[in-house]
Design a binder for these strands. Structure first.
Length: 274
DNA sequence: CCTGCTACCTGATGGC
DNA sequence: TGCCATCAGGTAGCAG
């Protein structure tokens, strides 16, 4: 599920909760969550580690340890949970793939669908995924100029460019669609055909959509103690995503859904210009 | 190098 | 009801 705004909200909320604590024991209940690493190596590398900080890169959540780092990627359905009482994390009742028992409580990595991963890295460059990330969508380096440069480097449908983590890191299917709607640009539009004015509009739209999304994700803040909670009700903030057949919030034309790169793209063919 | 396709998983939903 | 197809906020790995 999570794209950069959700992961950023998790990062900020989790930071004060776990900074400075010690991972004492690690229970890998579903080894697939560690694949292709082994449960044993995750345990030996993270047990007794001190959590020095929490960071985000693209859609990755990073727990910086005194030795190396714990990198989590949630893919579609991954989430984290916090248990004040570690016994609750180990109870058979809720599905938890990995339990990190600490001196303060237990951190759980959960993914029913088993696509998400938690890996230990000696250094960040050891992960191909992290190494390959382009300009982070929330960083100062994500400027209008950089975006235009990427757009003009090769002809790519705008939606695919925005979703390519090697170019802009952090945008996913929802916020790429929302940004294009806001910029009034078609997802099919060839990136190298943008005028300066359109490039500026796209950059502004991405920044604005991400800013609002982060606000939305922080109010109310993530509640890691509640297993039923995980960024519910995003649709209250969305204008096009998931709204096939409904009237466009701007021009009332019917929102369409097409396939791009094997994913659904939602847009208004009337007011998003190609 | 780059681009495009499939696999990886599980669960919810809708049509027949 | 049951059964089957399709869909889901993503990326790694592979072929061309």
């Amino acid at each position: 599920m999570p794209e950069a705004p959700e992961v950023e909200a998790v990062t900020r909320t989790l930071r004060p909760l776990v900074r400075g604590i010690i991972i004492q024991r690690v229970h890998v209940r579903h080894a697939v969550a560690v694949h292709p690493q082994s449960a044993a190596s995750l345990k030996t590398n993270t047990a007794n580690a001190h959590i020095a900080g929490v960071q985000r890169r693209g859609k990755y959540l990073l727990l910086m340890l005194d030795r190396g780092c714990l990198a989590m990627h949630f893919k579609f359905d991954g989430r984290i949970l916090w248990f004040d009482d570690p016994k609750a994390a180990l109870a058979r009742r809720t599905h938890v793939d990995i339990v990190f028992e600490t001196n303060k409580g237990a951190l759980g990595f959960v993914d029913q669908r088993h696509l998400g991963r938690a890996h230990w890295l000696a250094k960040l460059e050891d992960s191909a995924g992290l190494r390959g990330l382009g300009v982070d969508c929330y960083s100062r380096e994500f400027t209008r100029e950089r975006l235009l440069e990427m757009c003009r480097a090769r002809p790519l449908p705008l939606k695919l460019l925005l979703m390519d983590q090697a170019r802009v890191a952090g945008l996913g299917n929802i916020y790429a669609a929302e940004s294009l709607w806001r910029a009034r640009l078609s997802p099919l539009r060839r990136s190298d055909s943008l005028t300066d004015r359109e490039g500026r509009a796209l950059h502004k739209a991405v920044v604005s959509v991400l800013g609002r999304a982060l606000e939305w994700c922080l109010n109310p803040p993530p509640d890691f103690r509640n297993p039923a909670w995980w960024f519910a009700d995003l649709d209250g903030m969305l204008r096009v995503y998931g709204r096939e057949g409904q009237p466009c919030a701007r021009c009332r034309a019917s929102i369409c859904r097409i396939k791009q790169g094997g994913r659904s793209t939602y847009f208004c063919a009337n007011c998003q210009t190609s």
